[in-house]
Computed example of a mutant assay.
Amino acid sequence: MRKKLKVGVIGIGNIAAIHLEAYRNHPEVEIAALCDIVYEKAKHSALEFHVPSVYTDYRELLKQEDLDFIDICTPNAFHAIIAVDALNKGKHVFTEKPDAIDVEGALRMAEAASHSGKHLMAMRNNRFAPGVQFLKRFIDQGLLGEAYTGRCGWLRRRGIPGKGGWFTTREISGGGPLIDLGVHFIDVAIWLMGNPKPVSVVGATYAKFAESSLSDSIHSGYGEKLEDGVYDVEDLSSGYIRFDSGATLQLEFSWASNVEQEESFVELRGTKAGFSLRKGEVKLFSEIADTMCTTTPDLSKAKTGGNHAKHLHHFIDVLQDRAEPIIRPEHGVDMIRILCALYESARTGREVRLDEERE
């Protein structure tokens, strides 16, 4: 067996429970420290997962010399701050999405990773879904052809998380469903397109459901609600991305909107075939023998299980030199550039160029 890696987890909320369970089930990981500003939360999880050290200040946790890597599960605004400090302390870093809430934070993270020589990776769990993995193999075999346009989205009818808490407070979250949900399926679409560089975006945001208390989504249970809290983010966003390859991508993400039902989707259209991915089901569209064909691959024997755990276990493989990282810091920088540019376009009503920023 390789060296057993010791991890310190910072931020013990809903999502941290999934991370802790993934580490508990990995034979090469020991959960060595937990940190949360609410001591009782960290102590409760420490008892459940048999963790010896508990902190309320992440900077004290980073002084624990035997930690090999840090896992950040805090609210969004703190991802970049903690990641940079951890990398500068010589720790590998895994962080929940989004990488950061602004481009400057994402750039600082990438620079710290480069200078430290340590691995930095942000959660992109949907890349590990069976349907996405199948499509990646399908595309890598050249069966899609040139991917020249597509659509992606995640639409909820009523699923605002932690209303009044940090999720709906822009200063801490960075925004609403665009930064919360968009990071998932914009990433999947761009990855399947071959990671083209974004050159311009147009975006729009809407906030229409701040007064609604209805919920029909399990996802509204995330975060802590505050009756008299802040709601200064969007509940629906839409947009359009143009890439240096000439390809384009339409997008739409909502926490609340008057649609038939909640759904997430990715569609790409290529010169040899197209596909849709909805609720884990893949459909392929193509011409065969002068006939229009729709094919539904059988993914019933694909490896199932939590996609978060699959990604965290991939990170362990990277740290143990068994795999090359599927997500790199530059992917995170591009993602945050896109999200922030979409918000800027929504604010100004104008197209935002990204290629000019890099010049």
Rank of each mutant, 00 (worst) to 15 (best):
E224H: 12
G182V: 02
R158K: 09
V132G: 04
E224N: 12
G174E: 05
P27C: 00
H26Y: 05
N14T: 07
I172H: 07
F315D: 02
P98T: 09
E48F: 00
E234H: 08
S215Q: 11
G274R: 11
G203F: 03
G332A: 04
P196S: 02
K163G: 07
L342C: 06
Y39V: 00
L277E: 10
R127L: 15
E252N: 09
K136Y: 11
A113P: 09
T205M: 10
G11T: 08
G182Y: 01
L107H: 10
M292T: 15
V51M: 03
H219D: 12
R24N: 08
L249I: 05
G117N: 10
E104Y: 12
T296N: 09
L87K: 04
Q250S: 15
H311V: 00
N76S: 14
F167W: 14
G164E: 10
I336D: 01
H184N: 14
G142N: 08
R337K: 13
V333P: 00
Y343M: 11
A346I: 03
V7H: 02
A207R: 15
D235T: 13
G145D: 06
M109H: 08
F185R: 14
S213W: 11
A16G: 00
V93H: 03
D102M: 07
Y55H: 11
V103G: 06
A210V: 13
I81Q: 14
K41F: 09
G305D: 02
K303S: 05
V7D: 02
S276V: 07
G239I: 03
T271C: 01
E171G: 10
A147D: 05
R137M: 11
A112K: 03
E359W: 09
L342R: 01
L62G: 03
T56Q: 06
A210G: 15
L268F: 10
D232I: 14
P325S: 01
F243D: 04
I82L: 01
A110M: 13
D68C: 05
K225Y: 13
G11A: 06
V199R: 11
G117A: 10
L135R: 11
M1D: 10
Y240M: 06
S116L: 08
E351R: 14
A122R: 07
I31G: 01
K208I: 10
I288N: 13
C340D: 13
K283L: 15
H331Y: 07
S245C: 09
A83M: 02
M121Y: 07
S345R: 03
G131P: 02
W166A: 05
N125A: 12
D355T: 10
Y231E: 02
S286D: 12
L20V: 01
Y39Q: 11
E281D: 14
